[in-house]
Design a protein around this nucleic acid. Structure first.
Lengths: 163, 163
DNA sequence: ATGTCTGCAAAGCTTTTGCACTGAT
DNA sequence: ATCAGTGCAAAAGCTTTGCAGACAT
């Protein structure tokens, strides 16, 4: 399935470049391959590092240009999170649900078929939907535990405040 | 309800500043008032303009500082959209569903109780949820119509490509 | 009086742009 | 041979930071 996704993405890119009579540069294919090989979220620097490790240096400008192209072709998804912009390979119509801890910033993938179903069944006015991003904010169990400990301590020294 | 929200937000801010022994500056209250008066999305410049129209000039740095404080207190929500960072007053536990046109970037509020219910009922692992942001991507009816017209034209001049 | 908050300007990041060279067609 | 694409460096945005002075407590 993942292998297919990469091939499928390459086919979309091929088709686009041929139709538009734009160039099939090695950079574009190397970047596409990297995007679909990394797995999960990554930022521009991580993408650059990944390519460089495979002895393929690509300039910042080209990375941005190419990612913009991929965004337009809907081959990648962009998330603008607290800790910067992250990209992610996009699998046909697949959507993304995340839970984000508002304290430590940790992002976890959420698998909730009921949510996906509800969103797909929603009757949207004057709109033709094609994928979504859901960010559920809250507190992860780790931070929750820390806060609990803190509160317990506080009960004893009433006025003390953390800074 | 909206009036209450503003008062409620002010109470939260008051409480925080008193507990932390931080200052109740006119800026903070003016900004809070503006945030809850503007209604809908706004960016930093729009917030600044709003205040300036009411003869209340606040520096960029203070706007950022104060918005960061409000974010921590969960009095405002921040959205990082295609066309920049937007803020929005946050109403207790209220969540936000948007549909975003991937062509023109238009953002519309979505009212879908079924989606909200599904998200609230989702069993999240190791997580204590508190609000969410949903972005449904797709094509708005306006752009959809434009594309249809374009495609109709194209059927006749087969190889012509738009640039 | 104290120490936080504000405003300013400078610095820091991320992303975009202009231009000359390279290379896919 | 073309001219789109790349790389580089500079520019442009947006956001943060350091510091001096202002002001809420």
């Amino acid at each position: 399935m993942d292998k297919n996704a990469k091939e499928n993405a390459k086919a979309i890119l091929n088709n686009y470049l041929e139709t538009k009579k734009h160039r099939k540069t090695p950079e574009r294919y190397a970047i596409l391959d990297a995007v679909f090989s990394i797995g999960g979220h990554f930022n521009l620097v991580q993408l650059s590092d990944y390519l460089e490790k495979r002895s393929f240096r690509v300039s910042r400008a080209t990375l941005y240009n190419t990612l913009r192209l991929f965004l337009e072709l809907r081959l990648v998804t962009r998330h603008r999170l607290q800790d910067g912009t992250k990209y992610e390979a996009r699998y046909a119509n697949e959507s993304h649900s995340h839970q984000i801890c508002t304290i430590c910033g940790k992002v976890t993938e959420v698998n909730a078929p009921n949510i996906v179903a509800a969103i797909n069944e929603a009757k949207l006015k004057r709109f033709y939907p094609d994928g979504f991003s859901l960010y559920i904010y809250g507190i992860c169990s780790n931070c929750h535990a820390k806060i609990s400990r803190l509160n317990n301590t506080r009960k004893h020294k009433q006025t003390k405040n953390k800074e």
